[in-house]
Write a protein that binds this DNA or RNA. Structure first.
Length: 254
DNA sequence: CCAGACGTTGTT
DNA sequence: GTCTGG
DNA sequence: CCAGACGTTGTT
DNA sequence: GTCTGG
Protein backbone atom coordinates (compact mmCIF):
# COMPACT_ATOMS: atom_id res chain seq x y z
CA UNK A 1 0.00 0.00 0.00
CA UNK A 2 1.09 3.41 -0.87
CA UNK A 3 3.54 3.00 -3.71
CA UNK A 4 2.22 5.86 -5.80
CA UNK A 5 2.05 9.44 -4.57
CA UNK A 6 1.34 13.01 -5.46
CA UNK A 7 3.97 15.26 -3.92
CA UNK A 8 3.74 18.83 -5.10
CA UNK A 9 5.44 21.45 -3.04
CA UNK A 10 2.08 22.96 -2.17
CA UNK A 11 1.68 20.38 0.57
CA UNK A 12 4.96 21.38 2.15
CA UNK A 13 4.24 25.07 1.82
CA UNK A 14 0.94 24.50 3.58
CA UNK A 15 2.80 22.68 6.31
CA UNK A 16 5.12 25.63 6.76
CA UNK A 17 2.13 27.92 7.11
CA UNK A 18 0.45 25.58 9.54
CA UNK A 19 3.61 25.63 11.61
CA UNK A 20 3.23 29.40 11.67
CA UNK A 21 6.62 29.95 10.13
CA UNK A 22 6.95 33.63 9.43
CA UNK A 23 6.82 34.92 5.87
CA UNK A 24 10.57 35.02 5.69
CA UNK A 25 10.97 31.34 6.47
CA UNK A 26 8.32 30.41 3.93
CA UNK A 27 10.11 32.52 1.37
CA UNK A 28 13.36 30.78 2.20
CA UNK A 29 11.68 27.42 1.79
CA UNK A 30 10.50 28.40 -1.67
CA UNK A 31 13.93 29.70 -2.58
CA UNK A 32 15.41 26.45 -1.40
CA UNK A 33 13.00 24.47 -3.54
CA UNK A 34 14.01 26.58 -6.53
CA UNK A 35 17.66 26.08 -5.67
CA UNK A 36 17.44 22.32 -5.62
CA UNK A 37 15.19 22.36 -8.68
CA UNK A 38 12.46 20.44 -6.93
CA UNK A 39 10.27 18.60 -9.41
CA UNK A 40 6.60 18.63 -8.48
CA UNK A 41 5.29 15.11 -8.64
CA UNK A 42 1.69 14.91 -9.73
CA UNK A 43 2.03 11.16 -9.76
CA UNK A 44 5.20 9.22 -9.07
CA UNK A 45 5.96 5.58 -8.31
CA UNK A 46 7.99 4.75 -5.24
CA UNK A 47 9.82 2.18 -7.34
CA UNK A 48 11.42 5.04 -9.24
CA UNK A 49 12.86 6.14 -5.89
CA UNK A 50 12.16 9.84 -6.43
CA UNK A 51 13.58 12.46 -4.12
CA UNK A 52 10.74 13.88 -2.08
CA UNK A 53 10.71 16.66 0.47
CA UNK A 54 10.62 15.40 4.06
CA UNK A 55 10.63 17.11 7.44
CA UNK A 56 12.86 15.25 9.88
CA UNK A 57 12.84 15.06 13.64
CA UNK A 58 16.42 16.36 13.69
CA UNK A 59 15.66 19.49 11.71
CA UNK A 60 11.89 19.97 11.51
CA UNK A 61 12.30 23.45 10.06
CA UNK A 62 14.78 22.42 7.39
CA UNK A 63 13.05 20.14 4.89
CA UNK A 64 15.32 17.71 3.06
CA UNK A 65 15.15 15.86 -0.24
CA UNK A 66 15.38 12.15 0.47
CA UNK A 67 15.00 9.15 -1.81
CA UNK A 68 11.90 7.03 -1.37
CA UNK A 69 12.99 3.52 -0.32
CA UNK A 70 14.93 3.15 2.93
CA UNK A 71 18.49 1.81 2.79
CA UNK A 72 19.57 0.61 6.26
CA UNK A 73 22.96 1.88 7.39
CA UNK A 74 24.43 -1.63 7.52
CA UNK A 75 23.93 -2.45 3.83
CA UNK A 76 27.32 -3.56 2.52
CA UNK A 77 27.29 -2.68 -1.15
CA UNK A 78 25.46 -1.23 -4.10
CA UNK A 79 23.91 -4.56 -4.96
CA UNK A 80 22.48 -4.95 -1.47
CA UNK A 81 21.12 -1.42 -1.60
CA UNK A 82 19.39 -2.00 -4.91
CA UNK A 83 17.88 -5.18 -3.61
CA UNK A 84 16.43 -3.78 -0.41
CA UNK A 85 15.35 -0.37 -1.64
CA UNK A 86 12.42 -1.89 -3.53
CA UNK A 87 11.29 -3.68 -0.40
CA UNK A 88 11.38 -0.79 2.02
CA UNK A 89 9.06 1.68 0.34
CA UNK A 90 6.67 0.93 3.17
CA UNK A 91 7.25 -0.13 6.78
CA UNK A 92 4.59 -1.99 8.75
CA UNK A 93 3.78 0.23 11.72
CA UNK A 94 3.17 -2.79 13.92
CA UNK A 95 6.79 -3.91 13.70
CA UNK A 96 8.96 -0.84 13.12
CA UNK A 97 10.54 -1.23 16.57
CA UNK A 98 11.48 -4.84 15.82
CA UNK A 99 12.57 -5.07 12.21
CA UNK A 100 16.35 -4.69 11.76
CA UNK A 101 15.82 -2.43 8.77
CA UNK A 102 13.63 0.03 10.68
CA UNK A 103 14.17 -0.12 14.45
CA UNK A 104 16.95 2.43 14.73
CA UNK A 105 14.94 4.82 12.60
CA UNK A 106 11.79 4.16 14.63
CA UNK A 107 13.61 5.32 17.76
CA UNK A 108 15.25 8.45 16.51
CA UNK A 109 14.91 9.04 12.79
CA UNK A 110 11.29 9.82 12.12
CA UNK A 111 9.96 12.22 9.53
CA UNK A 112 6.80 13.58 7.96
CA UNK A 113 6.16 13.43 4.24
CA UNK A 114 3.55 15.88 3.04
CA UNK A 115 1.66 14.29 0.19
CA UNK A 116 -1.18 15.86 -1.75
CA UNK A 117 -2.61 12.43 -2.45
CA UNK A 118 -1.78 8.80 -2.94
CA UNK A 119 -2.94 6.30 -5.52
CA UNK A 120 -4.25 2.75 -5.20
CA UNK A 121 -5.82 0.26 -7.57
CA UNK A 122 -9.24 -1.31 -7.37
CA UNK A 123 -9.49 -4.82 -8.77
CA UNK A 124 -12.54 -6.01 -10.69
CA UNK A 125 -12.89 -8.95 -13.06
CA UNK A 126 -9.17 -9.24 -13.56
CA UNK A 127 -8.71 -5.57 -14.40
CA UNK A 128 -7.34 -2.71 -12.33
CA UNK A 129 -8.73 0.80 -11.89
CA UNK A 130 -6.57 3.51 -10.35
CA UNK A 131 -8.00 5.67 -7.57
CA UNK A 132 -6.70 8.90 -6.12
CA UNK A 133 -7.17 9.34 -2.37
CA UNK A 134 -6.82 12.80 -0.82
CA UNK A 135 -8.13 14.96 2.00
CA UNK A 136 -11.64 16.28 1.47
CA UNK A 137 -10.55 19.78 2.49
CA UNK A 138 -7.55 19.62 0.13
CA UNK A 139 -5.15 19.99 3.03
CA UNK A 140 -1.87 18.06 2.81
CA UNK A 141 -1.68 14.58 4.21
CA UNK A 142 1.06 14.34 6.80
CA UNK A 143 2.39 10.84 6.22
CA UNK A 144 4.43 9.18 8.96
CA UNK A 145 7.86 8.24 7.71
CA UNK A 146 11.22 6.93 8.87
CA UNK A 147 14.55 7.97 7.40
CA UNK A 148 18.11 6.71 7.33
CA UNK A 149 21.51 7.57 5.96
CA UNK A 150 23.70 5.18 4.02
CA UNK A 151 27.23 5.44 2.72
CA UNK A 152 28.54 2.68 0.51
CA UNK A 153 31.52 1.19 2.43
CA UNK A 154 33.13 0.51 -0.93
CA UNK A 155 32.27 3.92 -2.29
CA UNK A 156 33.35 7.52 -2.07
CA UNK A 157 31.78 8.19 1.30
CA UNK A 158 28.86 10.06 -0.21
CA UNK A 159 25.83 9.81 2.03
CA UNK A 160 22.54 8.76 0.51
CA UNK A 161 19.51 9.75 2.57
CA UNK A 162 16.34 7.72 2.20
CA UNK A 163 12.92 7.34 3.77
CA UNK A 164 10.04 4.90 4.04
CA UNK A 165 6.31 5.37 4.58
CA UNK A 166 4.78 3.76 7.66
CA UNK A 167 1.60 1.78 7.08
CA UNK A 168 -1.20 0.56 9.31
CA UNK A 169 -4.52 -1.26 9.11
CA UNK A 170 -6.69 0.14 6.34
CA UNK A 171 -9.91 1.97 7.13
CA UNK A 172 -13.30 1.33 5.51
CA UNK A 173 -12.42 3.44 2.48
CA UNK A 174 -9.30 1.44 1.76
CA UNK A 175 -11.24 -1.78 2.19
CA UNK A 176 -13.58 -0.65 -0.54
CA UNK A 177 -11.05 0.87 -2.93
CA UNK A 178 -7.94 -1.23 -2.57
CA UNK A 179 -9.23 -4.76 -3.01
CA UNK A 180 -6.27 -6.72 -4.36
CA UNK A 181 -7.41 -10.33 -3.99
CA UNK A 182 -3.88 -11.49 -3.22
CA UNK A 183 -3.14 -9.19 -0.31
CA UNK A 184 -3.48 -10.19 3.32
CA UNK A 185 -5.57 -7.42 4.79
CA UNK A 186 -6.38 -3.79 4.09
CA UNK A 187 -3.44 -1.45 4.68
CA UNK A 188 -3.01 2.28 4.40
CA UNK A 189 -0.31 4.86 5.03
CA UNK A 190 -0.29 6.38 8.50
CA UNK A 191 -1.70 9.89 8.29
CA UNK A 192 -0.87 12.03 11.32
CA UNK A 193 -3.57 14.55 12.36
CA UNK A 194 -2.45 18.17 12.64
CA UNK A 195 -2.44 18.21 16.42
CA UNK A 196 -0.17 15.17 16.60
CA UNK A 197 2.43 16.07 13.99
CA UNK A 198 4.87 17.61 16.47
CA UNK A 199 4.67 14.44 18.57
CA UNK A 200 5.73 12.27 15.65
CA UNK A 201 8.77 14.48 15.15
CA UNK A 202 9.60 14.71 18.86
CA UNK A 203 12.95 13.02 19.41
CA UNK A 204 12.14 12.60 23.08
CA UNK A 205 8.78 10.91 22.46
CA UNK A 206 8.83 7.38 23.81
CA UNK A 207 7.81 4.22 22.07
CA UNK A 208 4.32 4.10 23.54
CA UNK A 209 3.47 7.61 22.39
CA UNK A 210 4.77 6.92 18.89
CA UNK A 211 2.90 3.64 18.66
CA UNK A 212 -0.32 5.35 19.72
CA UNK A 213 -0.03 7.55 16.62
CA UNK A 214 0.14 4.56 14.30
CA UNK A 215 -3.50 3.95 13.49
CA UNK A 216 -5.93 4.28 10.58
CA UNK A 217 -6.98 7.79 9.64
CA UNK A 218 -10.63 8.87 9.82
CA UNK A 219 -12.10 7.81 6.48
CA UNK A 220 -14.81 10.44 6.61
CA UNK A 221 -12.12 13.09 6.06
CA UNK A 222 -10.91 11.50 2.82
CA UNK A 223 -12.19 11.70 -0.73
CA UNK A 224 -11.51 9.32 -3.57
CA UNK A 225 -12.23 8.98 -7.26
CA UNK A 226 -11.07 7.02 -10.28
CA UNK A 227 -8.35 8.52 -12.45
CA UNK A 228 -6.71 7.66 -15.78
CA UNK A 229 -4.05 4.96 -16.01
CA UNK A 230 -1.02 5.74 -13.85
CA UNK A 231 1.10 2.65 -14.59
CA UNK A 232 2.23 0.76 -17.67
CA UNK A 233 2.41 1.86 -21.28
CA UNK A 234 -0.91 3.72 -21.15
CA UNK A 235 0.16 5.78 -18.13
CA UNK A 236 -0.53 9.49 -18.26
CA UNK A 237 2.78 10.25 -16.58
CA UNK A 238 3.82 13.10 -14.32
CA UNK A 239 1.25 15.61 -15.53
CA UNK A 240 -1.27 17.73 -13.62
CA UNK A 241 -4.20 16.01 -15.31
CA UNK A 242 -3.47 12.64 -13.68
CA UNK A 243 -5.50 13.74 -10.70
CA UNK A 244 -8.60 14.42 -12.80
CA UNK A 245 -11.54 12.12 -12.39
CA UNK A 246 -11.99 9.57 -15.13
CA UNK A 247 -15.21 7.57 -15.22
CA UNK A 248 -15.04 3.83 -15.83
CA UNK A 249 -18.11 1.97 -17.03
CA UNK A 250 -17.41 -0.90 -14.64
CA UNK A 251 -17.16 1.27 -11.51
CA UNK A 252 -20.62 2.60 -10.72
CA UNK A 253 -20.01 3.71 -7.12
CA UNK A 254 -17.84 6.79 -7.68
C1' DC B 1 30.77 -21.11 15.42
C1' DC B 2 29.85 -18.86 10.45
C1' DA B 3 26.53 -17.58 6.76
C1' DG B 4 22.88 -15.23 5.57
C1' DA B 5 19.07 -12.39 6.22
C1' DC B 6 17.45 -8.03 7.21
C1' DG B 7 10.95 -6.17 3.39
C1' DT B 8 6.18 -4.98 1.56
C1' DT B 9 1.41 -5.88 -0.19
C1' DG B 10 -6.86 -6.37 0.99
C1' DT B 11 -9.00 -13.26 1.48
C1' DT B 12 -15.24 -9.82 -0.26
C1' DG C 1 -0.06 -19.44 -13.44
C1' DT C 2 4.04 -17.30 -11.77
C1' DC C 3 8.08 -14.60 -11.68
C1' DT C 4 10.72 -10.33 -12.49
C1' DG C 5 11.35 -5.45 -13.09
C1' DG C 6 10.32 -0.95 -11.86
C1' DC D 1 2.30 -2.83 -5.27
C1' DC D 2 1.05 -3.51 -10.78
C1' DA D 3 2.57 -4.54 -15.64
C1' DG D 4 4.63 -7.42 -18.50
C1' DA D 5 7.03 -11.42 -19.72
C1' DC D 6 7.04 -16.16 -20.23
C1' DG D 7 11.24 -18.56 -26.20
C1' DT D 8 14.21 -19.93 -30.09
C1' DT D 9 17.24 -19.20 -34.01
C1' DG D 10 23.37 -17.28 -37.13
C1' DT D 11 23.20 -10.99 -37.93
C1' DT D 12 20.40 -5.27 -39.53
C1' DG E 1 24.59 -3.76 13.22
C1' DT E 2 22.18 -7.82 15.02
C1' DC E 3 19.57 -11.90 14.93
C1' DT E 4 18.41 -16.57 13.20
C1' DG E 5 19.30 -20.99 11.17
C1' DG E 6 22.17 -24.71 10.45
Amino acid sequence: MCYNAEAQTKASIKYAKHKSFDANIIKQLQLKLDLISYTPYYQVSGFAHPRILVFTDREPLEPKLFHWGLIPSWIKDEEGAKKIINQTLNARGETIYEKPAFRTSAKSKRCLVYLDAFYEHHHLNGKTFPFRIAMKDDSPMAIAGLWEEWANPKGSGEIISTFTIVTTVGNSIMAKVHNNPKAEGPRMPVIIPKDKQDEWLDIKADKEVIQSLIKPFDGSLLEYHTVGKILGKAAIGNKPEVENKVKYQEIDWV
